[in-house]
Design a binder for these strands. Structure first.
Length: 260
DNA sequence: ATGACATATGAGATATGA
């Protein structure tokens, strides 16, 4: 079972790239973030032609998440619980049944939160509190659970090429990292760190500006967090960095986890 | 340095991203 996450920064602008990567990598499930379109505008048929079932939770212009799966998507839920006034489309969840059992998969597009002195940062922190509460509930099921997506969190200095550049940024502020740790400390495992250890230099995002890609000035902000039952089955994690070198790429690249 | 770059909206300039 291969489960991937990828922030595509507009599915309309990235349809060809997404199709090319799916043909190349062939994951069973993909969590897409920032589709930036309403549900009716998502090019589902093109992905269905590749054998994927598609569910979306989109909105006009901003945000939006989609789940693509070769397996049937069951118990689909849209939106992160905890705030009925939240209109931003940032969470979709479903269950898939693989040959070796079921996985519940939550697809996350966590708010950016910049600038830190704004309401946007308070929204980010509240959203993380809601995610913590939801993860806590899901963990009581004691089943394989993968919470994958663009967390907009740099967990540690080793997750940035130049950590000093991020000290006052909403992605790396102590409060942000503390909330991320609180979520991990519920009993979740960072899949990439379990698989690859604490090696530095692994990034999933390179800014379009100032030649960040050419200088490998990246950050690791796309994560797959695993319940104990999912972590037990993890066999490998990789980052498909080469995608960032494609023509007109998104600024994020796919992260893929393999499970036995 | 609020800029570089990129996308959506909508038709010029602004909001958002990280």
């Amino acid at each position: 079972m291969q489960i991937a996450t990828w922030n595509v920064n507009s599915i309309k602008a990235r349809t060809d790239a997404a199709l090319a990567w799916l043909k190349e990598a062939g994951p069973d499930v993909v969590c897409l973030q920032e589709i930036k379109c309403e549900d009716s505008a998502f090019p589902s048929a093109l992905f269905e032609d590749l054998g994927y079932n598609v569910v979306t939770h989109g909105q006009k212009t901003y945000n939006g998440v989609a789940l693509l799966s070769k397996l049937r998507l069951e118990d689909v839920r849209m939106g992160l619980p905890g705030d009925s006034d939240d209109t931003q489309a940032r969470y979709i969840e479903a269950v898939v049944h693989g040959a070796e059992g079921a996985f519940r998969i939550g697809n996350i597009y966590l708010p950016n939160g910049n600038p830190p002195d704004s309401e946007k940062y308070l929204y980010k922190l509240r959203w993380m509190d809601r995610l913590k509460a939801h993860a806590h509930r899901l963990l009581t099921h004691e089943e394989p659970l993968v919470l994958a997506g663009d967390y907009n969190v740099i967990p540690a200095p080793r997750d940035a090429k130049v950590p000093e550049n991020w000290t006052s940024d909403a992605l790396f502020l102590p409060q942000t990292r503390a909330r991320f740790r609180e979520i991990l400390n519920l009993g979740l495992t960072d899949a990439l760190r379990q698989s690859l250890g604490d090696v530095p230099g692994i990034y999933t995002f390179w800014d379009y500006q100032a030649g960040a890609w050419q200088k490998n000035n990246g950050i690791r902000i796309d994560h797959l967090l695993l319940s104990p039952q999912a972590a037990d089955r993890l066999t490998a994690v990789r980052v498909d960095k080469h995608v960032r070198g494609w023509e007109r790429p998104p600024d994020h690249v796919p992260v893929i986890a393999n499970f036995k």
